[in-house]
Amino acid sequence: MSHTLAALSTAAPLAAGWTIHGLWQHRLIDRAERDELTGLPRRAAFEKNAARMLRRTGRDVVAVLVIDLDGFKQVNDIHGHAAGDTAIRETGRRLAQWAEPLGTAARLGGDEFAAIIRCPDPDTLRGELTHLHQWLCSPVTYDGLPLPLGTSIGAYPHTTGFGPAVELPEALRVADEAMYGVKQTGGGWAITHTPTPAYRTVNGRRDGRRGTDLDTAGGTT
């Protein structure tokens, strides 16, 4: 009995040490997978979670979103990079809060973000996109001044359990096309229901306005 108690008393601190070590490693990994400015997941972590959501079965609508700020370059040029960082940070905060109960979001780089959400039906998706667009276009204050920013959002929905599986790279490409198309018309959001052929414009971006079935709402900026 005494040998058993001695062994347990020796193992307890070791187990506690490994637990602390494991938590420390988990925090380091989580920190490395998150964008320093916004706290959102980076691309790799987002792609892993998003691919998992697309593979789930059910009858919900899973929508992949690409979000880009409008007027961000002007904010940097006129107000400075600190103001730009404030805009990115606040956009990330709003996007994370919006996406949290529905899915997940990420910062892809610069002023471009991505998200994936699960909705019960297309009408709910439209309502969520309208809410998100209005929120992201609401003023961000820096040094007492409102920063003039707009947002363009492209979404590609997939109803799980119907038709062939959708791969995340393709969904992101199509959502990006829809985002770029609505950006060229002044911002807002667009849902594209039909994938387009992979070709590029002279700007190096694919043109989501051609050959697609678009459900759109105009911007307010």
Results as ranks from 00 to 15, higher is better:
His193Trp: 10
Glu128Ser: 13
Val166Met: 10
Thr19Leu: 10
Gly204Pro: 12
Ala45Val: 04
His158Tyr: 02
Ala217Thr: 14
Ile88Gln: 00
Leu40Arg: 01
Thr159Gly: 08
Thr38Cys: 04
Leu5Arg: 09
Tyr156Leu: 06
Gln97Asp: 14
Gly204Trp: 02
Ala165Lys: 07
Gly80Ala: 02
Asp213Arg: 11
Gly181Lys: 03
Ala99Thr: 06
Leu8Lys: 05
Leu37Pro: 11
Leu125Lys: 01
Ala6Cys: 11
Gly211Ser: 13
Pro157Val: 03
Leu69His: 07
Glu47Ser: 07
Tyr199Ile: 15
Arg42Trp: 08
Ala105Val: 03
Asn203Leu: 13
Thr124Ile: 12
Thr124Asn: 06
Ala83Thr: 03
Glu90Ser: 05
Val202His: 09
Phe162Asp: 12
Gly84Trp: 00
Ala45Ser: 04
Gln74Ser: 14
Arg210Lys: 11
Trp135Gly: 11
Asp123Val: 14
Asp85Asn: 02
Leu145Ile: 14
Gln184Arg: 12
Lys183His: 06
Pro195Glu: 01
His131Gly: 14
Pro146Phe: 06
Leu23Gln: 15
Gly92Asp: 03
Pro13Thr: 05
Trp18Ser: 14
Gly186Ile: 07
Pro13His: 01
Ala198Ser: 14
Gly208Tyr: 00
Val62Gly: 07
Val61Arg: 05
Ala155Arg: 04
Thr141Pro: 11
Thr196Lys: 09
Leu147Ser: 00
Leu136Met: 03
Arg205Tyr: 14
Thr151Asn: 02
Gly92Ser: 01
Pro101Phe: 09
Asp85Gly: 02
Leu14Trp: 04
Glu177Ala: 13
Glu167Met: 12
Gly186Thr: 08
Gly80Thr: 02
Asp213Val: 15
Gly144Pro: 06
Ile116Gly: 08
Phe72Thr: 09
Thr185Asp: 15
Phe162Trp: 10
Arg42Thr: 13
Gln134Leu: 06
Gly17Asp: 00
Arg94Glu: 04
Thr201Ser: 11
Gly92Arg: 01
